[in-house]
Design a protein around this nucleic acid. Structure first.
Lengths: 346, 346
DNA sequence: GCCGGGTCTGTAAGCGCTTTCACGAGGGGG
DNA sequence: CCCCCTCGTGAAAGCGCTTACAGACCCGGC
């Protein structure tokens, strides 16, 4: 179980190259390449010799060599702000899943709000055939720069960028539906938490909400309460807000903010939903397990990523049609945090 | 704002190469490379010309060319079963964060329990300088194969593999502590949910639990209840278990199983914690928002990934010392789901 | 017997970089 | 005034593959 099948001594490093295989099989590297890819007929006997040599040397072609010769990477990238919440993780998962299906590796890049985002994205661009950019991780001009290198880009959860495909979850209508539902509950004083400046989604949710409130003759809050999109952000901002001028309905740009706000409210002795209605966005796992259950808007997070991956694949397949802009439907999920309902509340 | 700074016509594709820059600056490609990397002195005037040319052509060196010449990828991979739960997402995030800090791109690969895992991992191995493997995504022999190509591997949440570094969260002691706590609550009939066959973590948790039970003279369940590590898995398995032979304490291998079990129990009219204690593992966001709050064991998920990234970096820096095996501490988090306590229950 | 057409294989030219080596031009010390 | 060293630069050899292009060989048909 040794000797014969062991790699030739001396190939201490990395792995065998096509040259070593060729030499061992006593053929030219062209022939090895041909059996590797099946691009041309190879005599059965020769093929057998080559295959034996490959096996003996545990040969795996160098991706670098292949890619350089083929002039593409067979890899795609995805850029997101961070992976801390469930939202981006789900999108990335949906993306990876279909990317893998169509045979492309995926490189991830989290900008972490770092200054160097531009450089990082450009570096990524040099390693992939195409990429998807989530939310406002980088400026439009960086995306333009990437597109300028002939690398297709599809943006997700972000306003359209010239020359790039895009996919978003529907925001305004669901925000209107949410606002209408809340107004029907009798809530008259609203606040919106989340920063429309740093998230296109938040912007459209805010827009839709204000429109609904106006339509229902409800006072529209002056401005959104800008806060980070995580639990701490929601908790801290809510603590301030509820301490000074408590509204009776709190519409949050995502579930984490909402859950943070609920924590703050409970600490202050404010009862949900009796004293304060709170709603989120996304429908993450914690939303359905929290008590009261969090009223929220479910987004097709996985599908967002999947759509992006498929579109990118089409582009890389040579599709040069005009950019497409997809909007995926969302769904209002009413639970107990926005007020009591007839049904058994949870 | 046109003309001068525009890329030369004709470079319709991909991007400029070092040759075009060299030609435009009227120097050799060696000189361009030198200003690019600062590896040798270049006269100020020459440097300026080259830089101007690079800017005009929007030149970015081809990663493929660089890597092939440098003989490494400047990229690492990470393999995980899937990203659906918060656990793996957090580990990946922790990994990406430090990998990015030390200047390495990261490739992700989710095996999704696919048959082709071996091929996928080997393909990944051809694209990276090192990789981390989470849990039991592939067999030891695949890892050996990767190591054989001189690619360092660090495994996470998995038993040791010859030749690879490893990092795990402490399992047995915390499981014992958990078991002791539960026994002190007076629970006498236990069940464990999660499949020790497919998760090293689950195996050690099961082991620790049984040891604690024995130490406290409590009946040890015959065997664990094998179920998928997600909510549905927990819910379905719990529905069966609670319908036939309900224990009074249910120790689950992760929070999602636990949350699913709680859902099933509530549907059957079983009260938590009065009729049944339930505990999880990980301390994900939903664990602290669910009511009753879920008693669980907090794992340093981010740090698991971060440690792996750092260790890999050391290896790639030339460290050839014996494999290191790190165990990160965990923390029992007692909430209401395991029984009433003196403190205000949540 | 010669020719056209497969089949199979090798030669060599890239792909876009890095880096070694060699060389010419200046400059300071002896 | 010559030698030696440093500085600045170009030529060219890789890195590990893919893929024209071309040549050798073997058939069968005329």
């Amino acid at each position: 179980m040794k000797a014969l099948t062991d790699p030739a001594p001396g190939d201490t490093d990395g792995g065998a190259t096509i040259y070593q295989v060729a030499e061992r099989a006593d053929v030219s590297i062209a022939t090895v390449s041909r059996v590797l890819r099946g691009t041309a007929p190879v005599a059965a006997a020769t093929r057998a010799r080559v295959e034996a040599a490959m096996a003996a040397l545990r040969f795996t072609p160098s991706r670098l060599g292949v890619s350089l010769a083929e002039r593409h990477h067979a890899a795609n990238g995805i850029v997101f702000p961070d992976l801390s919440g469930p939202y981006f993780a789900e999108v990335v998962l949906g993306y990876e899943e279909v990317a893998a299906e169509v045979g492309r590796s995926v490189l991830i890049l989290s900008t972490h709000g770092r200054q160097a985002a531009r450089e990082m994205v450009l570096d990524l661009a040099a390693r992939v055939d195409g990429m998807v950019v989530l939310a406002r991780t980088v400026d439009d001009e960086v995306i333009a720069e990437v597109l300028g290198k002939n690398i297709p880009v599809v943006v997700v959860a972000r306003d359209r960028v010239r020359g790039a495909d895009s996919v978003n979850a529907e925001n305004e209508h669901s925000a209107e539906a949410l606002g209408a539902h809340l107004a029907a509950h009798g809530h008259r004083s609203f606040a919106f938490m989340g920063d429309p400046e740093i998230s296109a989604d938040a912007y459209h949710r805010w827009t839709g909400l204000t429109r609904a409130l106006r339509a229902h003759g409800v006072n529209v809050p002056q401005r959104p309460v800008a806060c980070p999109f995580d639990e701490d952000g929601g908790r801290e901002a809510a603590a301030v807000l509820l301490g000074t001028d408590p509204p009776d309905a709190l519409v949050c740009a995502n579930d984490e903010i909402a859950l943070g706000a609920i924590t703050a409210a409970e600490q202050m002795g404010i009862r949900i939903p009796d004293d304060l209605a709170v709603t989120g966005w996304d429908d993450v796992m914690a939303a359905r397990h929290s008590r009261p259950g969090l009223t929220t808007v479910r987004q097709p997070m996985r599908q967002l990523g999947a759509w992006a991956a498929r579109r990118l694949h089409e582009r890389l397949g040579g599709d040069t049609s005009a950019p497409r802009h997809e909007v995926l439907p969302t769904q209002l999920v009413v639970r107990a945090s926005c007020g009591h309902h007839n049904k058994e509340d949870r």
